[in-house]
Write a protein that binds this DNA or RNA. Structure first.
Length: 493
RNA sequence: GGCGGCGUAGCCAAGUGGUAAGGCAGAGGUCUGCAAAACCUUUAUUCAGCGGUUCAAAUCCGCUCGCCGCCUCCA
């Protein structure tokens, strides 16, 4: 089954054929580093992290480039506000971004270039564009003349007329056409600047991506990704620059992720309705956030709320609880060889074996269909149910059963390398969730343990009334007791 | 105003022509001294509404209603 991806350029799902067999070049627009990242950034980065991981998983040699935009108006403004060099701001938020992505469990891209390290390449492209008549100088600035590129707006599928109809047309006296955009901006005194054939200045926003992608991936490469909101103008302008300069196709498959919404509205800085990644991670586990993001298709909008995060956590707990039980069965078994002779699997076992046999193929089939993570997680949940059933119906496990459970464990580990989940030992993850919940309780774990001990004595003495009193008392505090043959443990509701 | 997308159970969500995955929540049951977890059963004759095409539509077409996005920095 071949990988099929939705290409924004064609508006259709297409079978992916790499430019060079066995290799993939992929560029994703990173962040402008002037503030902490919010959940929208988390989604974009997680989505492309999964795509990166899956491409590697199916055997491609992937070169993944994700840039930092470290020079920009907003960075300069922020630097002025704090009266520091722009570099201080850029470096601070690059560090913050790296920390956030690390906590979210993102795989490191192959290259993470900074715009300011590629000024030379940027200038070269602008010179080429000027030489070819696609750009013109105007009062120290250099603009791209969109009229010279007939295919302009092919990505967003609109026409110049449609774009301008009703749109606020800012009259840029410096521009020949209001739709023209800056390739190079002259700098005001005191602003960061680089020398160029057009005087001191800095690059426009779009040109850096053309320069960096060409540097690391060549003139034509396979995937270019980013949020939907980058389609216009950013990606449209990148196409105009790169294709006009190089005279060949820029990107073969354009991928765009959907937004994170708050109450059905786009989360954004300008609306002020955003949550930073670090704020969310104070309360929720990184894998929980990842789970929530993976539970919807990457192109659909996703609503962000505590309720959705809570549900995601419950769902992940279900998976981890199952894996913990599998680990238990796998390690708690006597290693002696005098286990029951070659057993035949009970019905639940045969059903599980069937699920296990199909799990990875079905998982891949889902991922092959434009990275359908929501469907792929459905496959995992079905495996969880079959596993739990088998566990619940088996008293003891023979070699056949144990090898089946080991396969369950392996398939989750395998799917986990693609989804970026199940990185922790199940019991550890569950303990982490438990203690996070316990923070909000009015009772300490020590007290809970003491009450459990008292209850155990009462129960031994068949004093169930006292035992139940203690259970109810703890329940009132949100503590559930779990009795088992091994003793009593507790969990937080 | 122009262009585009979406509307699937109480909630989240997959499904783009063949008769509705999965998760959460709910109900009943098994297990348990009682619970919890787990398991079993159950919860949309129906996919915003109305019409059309087809042997067959949530899936294609048209219209209506509602929500959202882009057209300006934005993941």
């Amino acid at each position: 089954m071949a990988l099929r991806v939705y290409n924004t350029l064609s508006g259709e799902k297409e079978t992916f054929v790499p430019q060079t067999p066995g290799k993939v070049g992929m560029y994703v627009c990173g962040v402008t580093v002037y503030d902490y990242c919010h959940i929208g950034h988390a989604r974009a980065n997680i989505v492309f992290d999964i795509i990166f991981r899956y491409l590697k998983y199916v055997g491609y040699d992937v070169t993944y480039v994700r840039n930092y935009t470290d020079i920009d108006d907003k960075i300069i403004r922020r630097a002025n506000q704090e009266s520091v060099d722009y570099r201080v701001i850029a470096d601070r938020y690059i560090k913050a971004f790296d920390e956030d992505m690390e906590r979210l469990g993102l795989a490191r891209p192959t290259v993470e270039p900074k715009a300011t390290d590629h000024i030379g390449g940027i200038i070269t492209i602008i010179e080429t564009l000027m030489a070819k008549g696609h750009a013109y100088q105007s009062e120290g600035d250099v603009y791209y003349a969109v009229d010279t590129f007939p295919e302009y707006l092919k990505l967003s599928g609109r026409t110049m007329d449609e774009m301008q109809a009703g749109a606020r047309v800012e009259v840029g006296e410096k521009k020949n056409n209001p739709m023209d955009f800056a390739l190079w901006k002259s700098s005001k005194p005191g602003e960061p600047s680089w020398d160029s054939p057009w005087g001191k200045g800095r690059p426009g926003w779009h040109i850096e991506c053309s320069a960096m992608s060409m540097e690391f991936l060549g003139k034509t490469f396979d995937f270019h990704g980013g949020g939907r909101d980058l389609i216009f103008p950013h990606h449209e302008n990148e196409i105009a620059q790169s294709e006009a300069a190089n005279g060949c196709q820029f990107v073969r498959y354009w991928l765009h992720n959907g937004f994170v919404n708050i109450n059905a509205e786009k989360m954004s800085k300008s609306l002020g309705n955003f949550f930073t990644i670090r704020t969310v991670l104070e309360k929720y586990d990184p894998e929980t956030l990842r789970f929530l993001i993976l539970s919807a298709h990457y192109r659909s909008p996703i609503d962000f709320s505590d309720q959705n995060l809570d549900e995601a956590q419950t769902g992940l707990e279900r998976m981890y609880t199952c894996l913990a039980a599998v680990d238990d069965a796998l390690t708690a078994q006597p290693s002696s060889i005098d286990l029951p002779a070659p057993e035949t699997l009970p019905e639940a076992g045969r059903e599980l074996r069937e699920k296990v046999d199909q799990a990875i193929p079905r998982f891949c089939e889902a991922m092959d269909d434009d990275f359908n993570t929501a469907l792929s997680m459905g496959v995992l949940f079905e495996t969880v149910r079959a596993t739990n059933r088998f566990l619940a119906e088996s008293r003891e496990f023979g070699p056949l059963a144990l090898s089946l459970l080991a396969r369950v464990r392996n398939l989750f580990a395998e799917a986990g390398t693609v989804l970026g989940l199940f990185n922790r030992r199940p019991v550890e993850w569950l303990d982490g969730i438990k203690s996070a919940k316990a923070v909000n309780m009015s009772i300490t774990p020590v007290e809970i343990e003491r009450l459990i001990a008292e209850r155990a004595e009462a129960r031994t003495a068949k004093n169930f009334r006292r035992g139940d009193e203690i259970r109810d008392l703890l329940l009132a505090q949100g503590v559930h007791l779990l009795d088992s043959a091994q003793g009593t443990t507790w969990n937080v509701k």
